[in-house]
Simulated scan of single mutants.
Amino acid sequence: MNKLRPTDFGSYWYEISKELSGIEMNSEISMIPIRSNASSTLYSVSLVGANNYPLKGYLSIPNKEGRFPAIYFAPRNASVLEIIPQGMSTNVRDQFVIFSLACRGMRNSDNPHVSMYPGQLTENVDSVENYIYRGIVADTLRGLDFILTRPEIDKNSLLAYGNDIALLAAALHGAVTHVVATPAYFFDTIDIAKLTNSYPLEEFNDYLRLYPDSELNVRETLSYFNLRWHAQSISANTLIICGDSENVYSKSNLTPFIDNIAGKITVKESENSAYKDGLFIQEWIADEIGDGVPILPQHWK
Rank of each mutant, 00 (worst) to 15 (best):
R228S: 10
L222P: 13
A184W: 00
A181H: 03
S100A: 12
I281M: 02
V180P: 00
G143N: 05
L158R: 08
N226D: 15
I71Y: 01
Q86N: 06
K18E: 11
I32T: 12
A262F: 10
Q120I: 12
A169S: 14
G57D: 02
A171Y: 01
T255H: 09
Y249A: 00
F99T: 11
S250L: 03
A286Q: 05
A78M: 09
G105W: 10
N272L: 03
N2A: 11
R76M: 04
T177L: 08
I285M: 02
H178K: 08
K194V: 14
L20T: 08
E19P: 00
A102D: 06
S214L: 15
L168K: 02
D213C: 14
S252V: 08
E82S: 03
S223Y: 15
S36E: 08
A78R: 09
L20M: 12
L216H: 13
N91H: 05
N108T: 11
E82F: 02
N63Y: 06
V248G: 05
I190M: 13
E271A: 02
S127C: 14
I32F: 14
R35T: 05
K155I: 07
Q95T: 08
M25V: 15
I29S: 13
P33R: 11
C103T: 15
T41H: 04
S36R: 07
V137R: 11
G10F: 07
T140I: 06
L168F: 07
H299C: 00
L55I: 10
T221F: 10
F186V: 05
